[in-house]
Simulated scan of single mutants.
Amino acid sequence: MTLPLIIAEGTPTEIGVSYGRQAAELIAGNFADYLVKFQDTGGHDPAEVTRLGEEFRATTHRHTPRIAAMLDGVAEGSGLPVGDIYALNARTELMVPPITECTGVAVLPEHTASGHTLLGQNWDWYPSQSPFTLVLATRDERGHEVLALAEAGMLAKAGLNSHGVGVGVNLLTSDRDGAPGGVPYHVLIRAVLDARHGIAGSLGVCSLPRSASINLLVGVAGGTAVDLELTPGLTGRVLPQAGILTHANHFVSGIDVRDRFYDLGGGSSLFRDFRLRQVLETAAAERRVTDKDVMAALQDHLGFPHAICRHVNHEDPQELWSLTASSVVMDLDERRMLVTSGPPCENPYQTIDLSDVFGSARPDSGF
């Protein structure tokens, strides 16, 4: 099974309306699925969900007006109330998820066979969400292009842009979460990709207010990578070691927070980041890592079923069921994404090249 590719161009509003119209059925299905989760894990009824979404709309307009224009357009195009679209993009803030998600990796160009920066991650989440996953490609009126995995109605998860910047994301949870006035979790991800001035501009996401913790692994073509552990009011930084940077779902930068991950009783996050490095380190030391090596690492089953490549464990209560919904590997120099629908051990990677989507020349500046 391949993921649907949604292509939208124009001003931010035009992009949002086009996306909303093309994916209206998927967006409605995704929101209906999350309404159940908002009630079960956050105690929010539909009216409160809409009200809270309107509050996040206000903060998004204040701090990221172009992204807000896109989300307003998604609401118009899909026919859903605008507050519901913002609630979708703030799904992490509106839930208390009992599961953790994602293992990410960046490999620097001096350690890859191609001399390119590679970025990859597995996105682990609830099985019920899988039917509502897509790939979104956008080109705005300035010529700036973005290619991103996304949940229907959202603007990004893992992705890359036409300036060679890529991002992966991991769920974090801390004692600082729940602060009012933040920009939604998935708007923060899109803000990395919407920045037009390379990685320096993308790292400006640190200045945006937050209501929930988030980890962003940001890399750039022909260059470097940095991991940002963002909580309300604090930022931690992690840098590559021996050409590899990995991250899972617990804090490692040493910032002054109480990591609520440990309230879940530990788990696979405590080894997944190290295991991903362990699988790739020999090839990295020999400066020969390829995208196939990263794909193979993301299929690793040590600790099965709670491994890098995650599968439903039917011995767990149903509310704890999770699996690798998508696996993504990106060559940031080639502006190429390889992505699966479902666990990568069972599903082939489909290839999407940003230059093929729009048939345009790549910008020659911005690194």
Rank of each mutant, 00 (worst) to 15 (best):
L332M: 11
A68I: 00
I199D: 05
L108F: 03
Q121A: 13
S162F: 01
P343I: 05
L35C: 13
V218T: 03
N122S: 07
S211D: 00
K157Q: 15
L80M: 04
A284T: 06
A90V: 00
F38W: 02
L338T: 06
V192F: 01
D84N: 01
V252E: 10
I85E: 00
K157P: 14
L88W: 05
V17N: 08
V192L: 04
M295D: 10
L71D: 01
E110Y: 11
Y126M: 10
A69N: 05
A32C: 04
E286I: 06
V187A: 00
G222R: 07
G178M: 07
L71G: 01
N347I: 07
T351K: 08
Y86D: 00
A69G: 02
D256T: 10
A225V: 02
R237S: 15
D194V: 06
L245R: 04
A90P: 03
V220I: 12
L188Y: 06
F304D: 14
A156Y: 01
T92M: 15
V135W: 12
G366R: 14
G359E: 01
H197Y: 14
D353N: 11
F56I: 00
C102W: 09
F304H: 12
D33F: 15
V49H: 02
S268A: 12
T64V: 09
P131K: 06
V257Q: 07
G254L: 03
D331Q: 01
D331L: 03
L119V: 05
N313C: 02
D300I: 08
F271K: 06
H197R: 13
P348L: 03
V328Y: 03
N249K: 02
G233H: 06
A297L: 10
Q121E: 15
S268M: 13
I67M: 04
T103P: 11
L5R: 09
H111R: 04
R288Y: 11
G53L: 00
L354H: 02
V289C: 09
T138S: 08
V205Y: 07
V226G: 10
P240N: 03
A68V: 00
L264C: 02
G243P: 04
